[in-house]
Design a binder for these strands. Sequence first.
DNA 1: AATGAATGAGGTTTCATTCAT
DNA 2: TATGAATGAAACCTCATTCAT
Lengths: 191, 191, 191, 191
Amino acid sequence: MPKIVDSEQYRKEILYKCFDLFAEKGYANVTTRQLSKELGISTGAMYHYFPSKQALFEQLVEEVSMQEFQLFKTAARGHPLSERIQALEMLLIENEDHFIKQAAIWVDFYQHHEIAEINENPVFQKIDRRSQQEISEFLNLTDLKLARFIWTLINGILIEQLEDDGSFSFREQIHLLTQMLIAYFEKYSPD
Amino acid sequence: MPKIVDSEQYRKEILYKCFDLFAEKGYANVTTRQLSKELGISTGAMYHYFPSKQALFEQLVEEVSMQEFQLFKTAARGHPLSERIQALEMLLIENEDHFIKQAAIWVDFYQHHEIAEINENPVFQKIDRRSQQEISEFLNLTDLKLARFIWTLINGILIEQLEDDGSFSFREQIHLLTQMLIAYFEKYSPD
Amino acid sequence: MPKIVDSEQYRKEILYKCFDLFAEKGYANVTTRQLSKELGISTGAMYHYFPSKQALFEQLVEEVSMQEFQLFKTAARGHPLSERIQALEMLLIENEDHFIKQAAIWVDFYQHHEIAEINENPVFQKIDRRSQQEISEFLNLTDLKLARFIWTLINGILIEQLEDDGSFSFREQIHLLTQMLIAYFEKYSPD
Amino acid sequence: MPKIVDSEQYRKEILYKCFDLFAEKGYANVTTRQLSKELGISTGAMYHYFPSKQALFEQLVEEVSMQEFQLFKTAARGHPLSERIQALEMLLIENEDHFIKQAAIWVDFYQHHEIAEINENPVFQKIDRRSQQEISEFLNLTDLKLARFIWTLINGILIEQLEDDGSFSFREQIHLLTQMLIAYFEKYSPD
DNA sequence: AATGAATGAGGTTTCATTCAT
DNA sequence: TATGAATGAAACCTCATTCAT
């Protein structure tokens, strides 16, 4: 079924092309006309691949989350905790653009959906727990809350970058966080 | 001029009543009808007090920022850095609701305005630098970047609360951050 | 509550103004723009009174059916069956325009709704049984099927008028039907 | 020219497959995609056989009318009027499905075409007079208006069946009409 | 000051039709 | 011939804003 493969591939390409626009302006501030113009296709073609703007956005969230999952999975990890933290630092810096945009759409996603709605949908439920799982596995932390907390802090940095005036680089901030975490772990769980 | 005072007071009341709605759903997802219904007045009355939805929102951002400024100004501070950090912790926890909503509208604000637009507007310029100033003064930190960075991390926690499932309380997270900061300062600037 | 009265009145006026257009062209062939132009108001105003084109149409069906009910209720009846039939003839001829258009929207209505959908909705259920009730009461017939059958024949004549070339008038056709019915009743139930 | 014959045959098969859908939902409520799905071919293929949806529909009307013509032509007739009427009854009952659907598309056809348009098109003009001719010949009635009128009443019954709840069968209704006609003719032209 | 009906530009979506393959 | 992705005009509908009352 080569056609389905191609079509599926094309669907993903569309999603990634929309990623920028949604991340920068927010879901509600991007019109379908803008999207289709950006994609270089007609609005009709967009609706051939996605049943609605809402669905396109949700599939974007899903796809992007899956890609993030892959990033975590394939990244080098290191062994002592400090090295793992540095591996995380590297992963974030190397994929700065992805992570920043992902943080943006995630905030948007939550504003457009009731919590109940997310909790009822198995796909979103799964995605929603992703960061916690990914981070805790990546850092090999048994304390899931701590893992999630670290991701929360990272998220703060990512969102700060949306309001970027360039004066305080992502790299610098991530590095500072890294140092903070290392200091914390040295103090509380010196292994 | 009691009338003007009243009117000004009423304007502020309107702003605070809008705060919830904007924070929860986001600027673009709240209609003027929803707002006026929430406010218990007609859309016409709303337009009597504010020239546009956009202006209402901007004045909300301004007002809320000013209130935050007051919060920082009037809060007890303590003297060694660790005590100052704990004072910050208390300030945040006591005003949890305010800070969470404020973080939400701030993200929205950035998505609705070009960076250039903000930089050209003296009011927003001033607001934009607020947190850096407030935090650095509050913690008595000379390193402005560090102060801003701390605020960035706090922001991450605040935004996380928007997606709250209640399983990891604001109080806990802020406390964890506090410990992390103290560990960091102990290691790098032990005074 | 004079405002509600007026508004309700206006809603009905809108419905009757739409009656012609829907009857002549059919639901799907009339655009909301055409409707609002015909009504002399903006599309927005239309949506102020009716939540959707579909709802407008359904309320039209309901309203028109209720009016028909009134027509039957207030019409003179006569006493022997033959006189009652002639009263029906008169009622139809005097309200030719209403009945023809009503037949048209009724056909449309059925094409746009699943039978199940109609049967689940008490309002439509009620309307759906209207003709049978009205006719049987009007003609004082105990045989409900016969009453409904007569209405079915009348409906045939009404719909024929939609395709009118004017060569065979409604009045003539209704009169012919009347004679047929009288002949039938004379033969089968000579009272 | 066997190929053309096949192609012509295929064209007709397509038309009959569309018959159901158009009759049930109405021209405007059936999309070309639905049609092609129902037909089991692509939209492109449909457009190979018919230049437009409109043309397909018109050819359907034409084809179905021609078939009706054949039905009338080949049906047994009987000799006295009462027997002829019973022959008509039989013809209708044996082809119930065809006649019901045909009535449906005929109503649709009129809503989609201006009277003038029909009168200018010789094909439709011819079709339009069909029932009158067919019926008057079939019943051997010299009064053309009366023949057309009878068809009008039958049409009422056919359309009633579209809104069928199954409680009053086509067969019963046609039979009742037959009795009514016989009673009428007995009274007014007892031959 | 206050109301809320009215406006209409513009948003999302549909669908008859075309066309590269 | 056949496919079905692509087109884009036009449909339905929303909503910030205005204005008569």
